[in-house]
């Protein structure tokens, strides 16, 4: 087991490094020089001397390879550098933003897990019924609807029409207590969670249907066990494996996909930070943000793989 985990971890590291390299190259090769952006503050044309000074102060005068290696070395030591614009250490910024994004992703998961699993189980048990078809329709809609459109719809409906929930931000001014935070969480969490919920429902349904046709389920029924017990003890547990996989993937989606939701709901998370960073060509911020998100993605996948091995001994032994 330990060697399995170790092997998976060692596979994850190069992926993270590669991701960071790709992001680094994309940023540096894209048009739009941060030095020019900063110097454009000046009403008159800037001189070469000024250009060189700013370029040097941002560390952009060195060859790309050197910049990358320096950056990577610093990151390994836990130093993400300083933002070009905020003139502030990125580490503190990351922690803050990550907290907000995790809070949102967690909220979305809390919504999508029970909704998705319950929906899937119910629709598999009532296969072909109106209920099943209704759930299926909702699922298709849930996968199809763009997050931001859903977000705006929810804002208009619950924020402005019914006036039940706040329309944006993470706290109200002058409040910021737990209840206030939770109230702010509801709409963005639902917007973000609907997609994953739909996917989980869909997967749970098909996995359930498959399992319900298995011999051991038939045997259990033949023994005269009540339907609820058959579903709970015999079928559902076996459904969990594919469901865990998809949940793992969805966590990655929740972290990365939070970008649009964060923008629509003015949620002060990683997504918003990355979007701002891209607009301002704030290389260190974007690099750090993307690296952290991809690491989170890799780590969740890793955890899922390990969880598998725990849940299903066959996986552990077959590798």
């Amino acid at each position: 087991m330990a060697s399995y985990v170790l092997r998976r971890v060692s596979q994850a590291v190069p992926i993270a490094v590669l991701t960071s390299l790709v992001v680094f190259l994309m940023l540096h090769l894209a048009p739009g020089d941060p030095v020019v952006i900063i110097l454009s503050a000046k009403p008159q044309a800037y001189t070469q001397e000024e250009f060189d000074r700013v370029e040097k102060s941002l560390g952009l005068d060195k060859p790309l390879a050197v910049q990358y290696v320096t950056w990577l070395g610093d990151v390994v030591r836990g130093d993400f550098g300083e933002s070009f614009y905020l003139r502030r250490e990125i580490r503190g910024l990351l922690v803050q933003r990550m907290e907000a994004t995790l809070f949102l992703a967690f909220g979305a998961l809390i919504f999508s897990l029970p909704v998705g699993i319950l929906g899937g189980v119910v629709s598999s048990m009532k296969r072909g019924s109106i209920l099943d078809r209704t759930i299926n329709a909702v699922v298709v809609a849930g996968v199809a609807v763009p997050t931001f459109a859903l977000g705006l719809f929810l804002i208009v409906l619950f924020g402005l029409k019914i006036e039940l929930l706040p329309v944006g931000g993470m706290t109200s001014f002058g409040d910021g207590g737990v209840v206030d935070r939770l109230r702010h969480l509801v709409l963005p969490a639902i917007s973000l969670g609907v997609g994953p919920a739909a996917i989980i429902a869909r997967l749970t349904r098909s996995a359930m249907l498959e399992v319900l046709n298995q011999d051991y389920v038939r045997t259990a029924r033949a023994k005269g066990l009540r339907n609820a017990i058959v579903v709970r003890r015999h079928a559902f547990r076996n459904v969990l494996i594919p469901v865990i996989t998809v949940i793992g993937l969805q966590v990655g989606f929740l972290l990365g996909g939070a970008v649009l939701v964060e923008v629509v709901f003015s949620w002060p998370g990683m997504g918003q930070m990355i979007v701002n960073g891209i607009q301002q060509r704030d290389f260190p911020v974007v690099q750090a943000g993307v690296l952290v998100v991809s690491l989170a993605f890799i780590v969740t996948n890793l955890v899922v793989d390990v969880l598998y091995a725990v849940v299903d001994p066959r996986i552990r032994h077959s590798r």
Binding site: V156, E163, P166, V167, G168, G169, F173, V263, S266, N276
Partner: peptide, 20 residues
């Protein structure tokens, strides 16, 4: 005096209309 930053146009309108 409280300064907030709501970047997205639709969200800005919603924040005004909701009284935030």
């Amino acid at each position: 005096v409280v300064f907030k930053a709501i970047p997205e146009a639709g969200a800005r309108a919603a924040a005004l209309l909701s009284g935030d």
